[in-house]
Computed example of a mutant assay.
Amino acid sequence: MIRKTSLMVMLILVIMTSGVFAMIPETMDIQTAERRSMETLLINSTNGTRYELFLISDNAHYVSDDPLYKKVYGRDALKDDYVQEGDFYVYIARLGGETAFLQKNIGPFSTLDTAGRSKNGCYVIPGQNGMPDILERATSRIMCGSDTSYAAQFYVIKDNRLQGIQFMRQDRRIESSSRLWGWIYGDDAVKYLDDGTFYIQWYENVWPRVGSYKAVYMFDYQNLIMIEAYTYKKGLHDDDYHRI
């Protein structure tokens, strides 16, 4: 009896797993990718090749449709009426190509706002001074404490794959972007500067680093590492930043 039950469980798992992979295949023709994509972006790789990036989901739903979320946040839930949650899988294809490829090394993204009313989803940061475009994956929710603060991770396309960028502090400690800051904030908080360096402004709410910061990085895109050049911390006044 136990053996039969185990076989039945294994069979169910196989069927369920097969169903998941059937819905999210490793490759997809361009026409299907364009039809199924909830958002499509154009991004230049490290060698200048242009790619289309597709975000595809089979389980996306609006955050405000969650009964528990409505119960906890009440009328504030209306602020997230345009934010969708789910598993948003990333596919890329060379511009003009016939096939889009699932980026299996990148886990599915969790939120998307195609209306552009919040920092949820993906944004292309155009390259400057010969640097490649950067894909910013942003996540912002009311429960984070501010409508203008968000968490972010960063990626580039290199060797025909979307790959994550690491960040190196001045103490030469290398960290993933998701662990590096408190909350990024402001409409112009992440960008390339004219000289090709990379700028980030953020707020840290963990003692003893509480405060507002601005940092500039040099991007070694061959090794996918942002190297910290210098950082400033805000003083008592808005225009009072000092180097740390």
Rank of each mutant, 00 (worst) to 15 (best):
Y192W: 09
I134L: 11
W183T: 06
V216K: 03
K158D: 10
L162I: 15
G186P: 04
M8P: 02
S177N: 09
S212I: 00
A151I: 10
S146Q: 15
S177F: 13
Y232F: 11
L180N: 04
V20S: 04
V124L: 09
K119P: 02
G107Y: 02
G19A: 11
K4C: 04
T27C: 14
I134Y: 06
S110C: 07
F109S: 00
G97D: 12
M168Q: 08
L7R: 15
V210L: 10
I56S: 00
R50M: 08
D113M: 08
I92T: 13
L224Q: 09
R173P: 08
R179W: 15
M10N: 08
C144Q: 10
N59W: 07
M218K: 12
C144S: 10
E26C: 09
E52Y: 15
G145Y: 07
S176T: 13
S140M: 06
D87P: 03
L102Q: 03
A151G: 04
I12S: 15
S6D: 07
R3A: 03
Y150M: 01
M38N: 01
L102T: 01
K79E: 03
Q128F: 03
T148C: 14
V210H: 07
K119I: 06
Q201V: 05
Q128L: 11
S176E: 13
T5S: 12
T27N: 15
T197K: 15
V206M: 15
K214W: 02
G182F: 00
L53F: 06
Y230T: 14
M131L: 11
Y230E: 10
A151P: 01
D194A: 13
V83W: 03
V216Q: 04
D194K: 10
F198Y: 11
K79D: 03
M38E: 05
F54H: 04
S18I: 10
D87V: 03
L112C: 06
R173W: 09
D159A: 08
